[in-house]
């Protein structure tokens, strides 16, 4: 969004000083909110240098390691390292499969529950039970069933996310403005059109909130499952480096997970802004 007056060949009018200052301030605003983060990283750096320990290397070392580990260009791989290509696609594919499964099931269950008060009353104790069980607690059970395999991660991610998506969807669907439903009835919309054109879009704010929260859960469960139940992936890498005393690499993998989380959140933000354009009316 940072549209600068300078450098753009299309800008014919030189912006005034006040305007330029305003633009500068706007461009710097995101940076201004990052000062606390920068300060914390600085504290990390100084603390690690003041009291060196192999367990906590200075941030500068981790950052250098991070660049080497993940972005050292291997031939024919754009800027990404072999290590990146070995770990990230595997992990993200598990997350995508698990989360997509949870989204499909969760929205379907949520619509059923949201449309029927009776179904809601019947199912709510069950859902509340599963929502109170931390997804991680299911890991040993899943291991028992699936063995050390991809299926454990996918199952765990899906299972840990589906209830949140289902309850958010049910809330959204049950709360659709009766005015819209009445209009839909008077238009004699068939079931499919009613669902796709009216109910789901009207419930979209709540559904997207559920998807956003569940994505965070999914990321956590992805890492947890990989710590125990796989032979590749980011979680597996973190555990491996920790067990083999390669602490800078452990921290660098940790950093990558954090950045992935931020990127995924940003992606959901974009989708949300696009899909919910109509909410910013007026």
């Amino acid at each position: 969004m940072a549209e600068r007056g300078r450098g753009g060949p299309a800008s014919t009018v030189e912006p005034g000083t006040a305007e330029r200052a305003g633009r500068l301030r706007r461009a710097l605003r995101p940076l201004a909110s990052l000062w606390l983060l920068a300060a914390l990283l600085l504290v990390w750096e100084l603390a690690a240098r003041a009291d060196p320990s192999p367990f906590l290397p200075p941030f500068s070392v981790v950052a250098a390691r991070f660049g080497e580990d993940w972005f050292a260009p291997a031939p024919g791989t754009l800027l990404l390292s072999e290590r990146f290509l070995d770990a990230v696609p595997v992990s993200l594919s598990r997350l995508a499969r698990g989360w997509a499964l949870a989204a499909v099931l969760g929205i379907a269950i949520g619509v059923l529950l949201g449309r029927s008060r009776a179904a809601r009353a019947l199912a709510s104790p069950v859902i509340r039970f599963w929502m109170s069980v931390p997804g991680v607690a299911v890991l040993p059970i899943a291991l028992q069933f699936f063995g050390v395999s991809d299926a454990v991660s996918v199952f765990l991610i899906a299972f840990g996310s589906v209830w949140i998506i289902a309850t958010h969807t049910a809330d959204g669907v049950a709360g659709v403005d009766p005015g819209w439903l009445r209009t839909a009835r008077s238009l004699r919309l068939p079931r499919g059109a009613l669902l796709l054109r009216v109910v789901l879009p009207a419930a979209a704010p709540s559904i997207l909130a559920g998807l956003r929260v569940s994505l965070g859960f999914g990321l956590v469960l992805m890492i947890v499952a990989e710590l125990y139940a796989t032979t590749a992936g980011l979680g597996h890498d973190i555990a491996l480096y920790q067990q083999t005393f390669r602490y800078p690499e452990m921290w660098s993998a940790f950093l990558l997970v954090a950045l992935l989380g931020i990127a995924l959140n940003g992606a959901v933000d974009l989708v949300e802004r696009r899909v919910l354009r109509w909410r910013r009316r007026g």
Partner: peptide
Amino acid sequence: VSVVFQDYARSLFPWL
């Protein structure tokens, strides 16, 4: 039979 309601905001679908 078509119906026109009083409250257009709750009758038109803002996402369409």
